[in-house]
Design a protein around this nucleic acid. Structure first.
Lengths: 347, 347
DNA sequence: GTGAAAGCGCTAACAC
DNA sequence: GTGTTAGCGCTTTCAC
């Protein structure tokens, strides 16, 4: 049922009546082969269904053309899109992707993840798991990372390349929009505050309130966990502890959906009684009831940008190795701007 | 900034004053080393931050402990969850995952994808891209796959291992539920009919109708593309061409959401005027307005089951290689059962 | 234009 | 217990 043995370059050489050398030249389409040789060799290659081994090749060339990707939260729309963007840009740049997912980002031990990638000789790493609690701090401690790492959606720090969207600006946009439409009592449903992104969005929201001469009181904030369910719960709690509420900014669209749902059940009219703004712009957002105003982030592009940055780092890195110079790589961080998308849930 | 050169086993041996052999023994915790040797070697290993190269190891052991995963549609909830399940089970079984995504499943050339994976010496492949048009047929044609392949969510065929959920049963469940609640004019919004899954769900729906003595007329069927938008459009078309409609089964939850939205805009009451059933049970389904009755599929488990099956195939495969016997591998297909989840959109 | 020899980093099979 | 030799599949000198 299955091919029992893979053909090697030796067998091809043997059957084609040339040296392995020549086969190698043909494989790499080197110029210095006589015109007929390639044809003969190619025929044998096809007959044997020969595939050069990337493993053997990497060993000698010291390049695997593979990047490691550490992801998490594939149950959410954003991270999934980001991964798709990563994979795509990687493919465009000729890199394969070795994927590892953190299933319990809060507690998973990160050391084995990293060393596993390194043992596979990845040329660089995209760290696309959310920054939770201080699960990153130890990475910062790791002396001399053996390969370039690009962090996604994390707090920029000197010395590391971070690609993220401007979450704080996103929070600001949401709150400013609500303020501009006359809402004075704007609640906030945050994501888990162990997440850096959630904290940033909160800060943006606060800044906007302060900018309008308002102060954010604790009772107008409820912490959710990104799920629609937590949004619904948050709504109920807010009604009790912040009854004057006339608007709410949810840190993601799924929680916003939970809020819309809970409001509907309570006969609270959106947007008349309550304006709602989300974050992400998931495909369902335009088809919620009513359509959801939200902060759109280009998660796909986020992934692509990260891989582009990593590609650069890897290139510099290899050049340095060639010229024996120290890879003085400038860590530059990229920040993408989110965008307000106005729909009827806030008007 | 970065470590300039990776340490090799040779350097470790040199600095520890032993042979590379002994280092190798320590690395693999072989029994035949004197008690003190490991300690000395370990110290050097740590000092040099030495990491054995999985590449060199694979070359000689002829095992990469890597599986290839071909995925697609990460913008949808199901495929993302499936991928998460795959990765997790793979990790549990000690396999790394080499990921490739099909971004245009309809047109992408599959050959390079496959040969790229093979050149990386993956030990098996999970084909988790939806069966579209006949993009699979050529795989069937590939003479002697070099490694075991497990297909996800595809039409079972003799000779290949397929893991899928029973889509037809899902369609049946949806329609039977609606019939049981007295709906007589049940419309269908399918997914793209180039997808096998979409066709199966349609067949189940038809079977249920026939079972109730009804016949499915073309005008009660509209083809969507999985997006909420297409669901909304389908609703409009159905109102025109199938005005007696009192229920609709949408082939996924996102389209169902689009239908709910369009109905709401048209003042069509759900469920009084129109019962709606979706497929998937995405997290938002319980928080749509009204909460959505749907067919739940365990996509995460689907991925895990696929990897378990692949793990078996790989094991058999290696045993056969050892004993020089022909790997007479029984291709067994697995089918998971979907489940009806009743919420208020259909009551 | 082509082949022979050497070696990438590691381990399997033998010696000692 | 430990070292030596050989070789995984390929590419890179460097002869010819």
């Amino acid at each position: 049922m299955y091919a029992t043995q893979r053909a090697t370059i030796k067998q091809v050489a043997l059957e084609a009546g040339v040296s392995t050398q020549t086969v190698s030249r043909v494989l790499n389409s080197r110029p210095d082969v006589s015109p007929e040789t390639p044809l003969r060799v190619q025929r044998v290659i096809e007959r044997l269904a020969y595939q050069p081994s990337a493993v053997a090749r990497s060993l000698i060339r010291k390049r695997t053309h593979t990047i490691g990707v550490v992801g998490a939260g594939l149950e959410y729309f954003g991270p999934s899109r980001t991964l798709a963007g990563i994979e795509r840009q990687a493919a465009d740049l000729g890199f394969s992707v070795l994927l590892t997912l953190l299933h319990e980002p809060e507690t998973d031990d990160l050391r084995p993840v990293l060393s596993d990638m390194l043992s596979h000789q990845v040329e660089g790493i995209i760290w696309a798991a959310p920054e939770i609690a201080d699960n990153r701090s130890w990475i910062d401690k790791v002396e001399q990372p053996a390969v370039p790492i690009v962090f996604l959606t994390m707090e920029p720090r000197s010395g590391s390349t971070v690609v993220s969207i401007d979450n704080r600006e996103g929070g600001r946009l949401a709150a400013q929009h609500l303020l501009a439409h006359g809402r004075m009592h704007i609640a906030l449903v945050t994501g888990p505050l162990t997440w850096w992104e959630a904290r940033e969005r909160q800060l943006g929201w606060e800044e906007a309130l302060n900018g309008a001469g308002l102060t954010a009181k604790p009772r107008q904030i409820v912490e959710g966990n990104w799920s629609p369910e937590s949004g619904a719960l948050a709504f109920t709690r807010l009604q009790a502890q912040f009854p004057e509420m006339d608007a709410v900014f949810a840190s993601n669209d799924q929680m916003a959906q939970g809020i819309l749902h809970a409001a509907w059940k309570d006969n609270v009219r959106v947007p008349q009684d309550l304006a709602v703004v989300g974050f992400d712009d998931i495909p369902e957002a335009s088809y919620s009831i009513p359509p959801l105003t939200t902060i759109r982030q280009e998660t796909n592009e986020l992934g692509r940008a990260a891989v582009r940055a990593l590609g650069q780092l890897i290139a510099t890195w290899h050049e340095a190795r060639k010229t024996q110079t120290d890879p003085a790589i400038a860590a530059q961080s990229v920040k993408l701007e989110p965008r307000l998308v106005v729909r009827s849930s806030s008007l």
